[in-house]
Design a protein around this nucleic acid. Structure first.
Lengths: 236, 236
DNA sequence: GAGTGGTCTAGACCACCTC
DNA sequence: AGGTGGTCTAGACCACTCA
């Protein structure tokens, strides 16, 4: 693990364990430099990372302060790691509805940047938090990258398998979101009345080298899903 | 303007003007260093900024590549600048429904970190894109920070006024999102049938020094609003 | 193995906040 | 004025990719 990541992790752990609150001041740069025995730029890089994660904010001429969001059970739209982290104290389970290898539709081929003749894994599953439906998820994986899937893998965390089992490195993701009305199949899968509102998202996940490997359509149960985003104005 | 911001702006402009596509390769670090006559760390900082904005991605050992999302008319949930930037080619207007000074509710006082005796500006308005309703917005501004508002200001971009007119610096924001069903008043304001689905968000905007100054509740017309987010895995 | 991006350092100087 | 974070440099060395 790199120095600046290590330091960021330690600082975050410290903040959590000591239950520091919004606005609490952290030691000044000078102190952190000597404490961790690194140069100024390394500390700065750690702090920039924590700032990007929404853990702290830095005020020039004043200090470094803790930033905490105050609502539990919200899913971060920024960590492209599925829900594992956000719903740590909740029980996450999945029911696999379908799993097969097929040819992509035009839409899927376009989003995965492949040809219509190439193969994709198709996975349809319902995900639950604490036994209640969270979302209905239809995923398409580029089979030449995600070379193997089975029902067992797919009923657990697919992303853990992709990273640890296949040794792939996830780089970045695009997410598109809107609201709508559940159709009959969706309502049935989520256990909601026909015509209920839905939160609907499409996301495309890429490897670090820029290759898209996963295109997913997710329909959320509006009663059990809420999201948060922490933004900075560093890029106006 | 700082060097690294200047360089980032120039590079972004270059990419737009030359209509570079997803995956197109940019010059290597060495070349950029000599071209802009700056050190490696400065170029790196520019590139990190562009990466954070979702404009490029960097692959170690390989190069720097253009990253472009391909859908028009989506609102970025990361730029905490209102919609100005995302809906550039659309006409944005507002209708002010209410504007007054009042005492905060407990909820508002909590989110703005003020006392129940303090004053807030309350603004209720409907916003339109190309003449169609985009959202219903109820905002509460800490009056000791946002010292003055009037109907004229409020019918234009409040944020431009806050930055340019009042000289305040916006730092970061928290956004909470979920879906639900429109109530009668909301449906009327948005011109939708009663009981339609809605996208509902609450956001808290802070100055660079960490003070919250704006708490807003926004109800979106689900037919006219769609969002996107570009995420990185740099902080797993 | 050549090319390319990423980390880290030590230090100079600058911009902003608080008192 | 003194304290604090932010920018920028020059250069060493490391890690990954790809032919």
């Amino acid at each position: 693990m790199l120095k600046y990541q290590q330091i960021a992790a330690e600082m975050e752990k410290y903040i959590e364990e000591h239950e520091l609150q919004q606005g609490d001041k952290l030691p000044v740069l000078e102190a952190l430099m000597t404490q961790f025995e690194v140069s100024k730029s390394t500390i700065t890089k750690s702090l920039d990372l924590l700032e990007k994660k929404g853990v702290i904010y830095q005020v020039r001429g004043s200090g470094i302060f803790v930033r905490r969001h105050k609502r539990k059970g919200y899913i971060s739209l920024l960590s492209n790691q599925g829900f594992k982290k956000d719903l740590e104290n909740f029980t996450l389970t999945s029911k696999v509805i379908e799993l097969d290898v097929r040819k992509p539709t035009e839409e899927v081929a376009y989003n995965l940047n492949i040809e219509l003749e190439d193969d994709v894994y198709y996975v349809k599953r319902v995900r639950f938090v604490n036994g209640q439906t969270l979302c209905l998820e239809e995923s398409y994986f580029n089979k030449s990258i995600v070379t193997y899937l089975n029902r067992e893998i797919v009923s657990e965390s697919i992303f853990s398998y992709i990273m640890e089992g296949l040794g792939l490195k996830i780089g970045f993701s695009d997410l598109f979101l809107n609201a709508g009305i559940l159709n009959e199949d969706e309502a049935k899968c989520l256990g909601l009345p026909n015509g209920s509102p839905k939160l609907y998202g499409e996301s495309i996940f890429h490897l670090t080298n820029g290759q898209p490997f996963d295109f997913s359509k997710i329909t959320y149960n509006y009663e059990n899903s809420q999201f948060f985003i922490q933004a900075n104005s560093h890029f106006i």
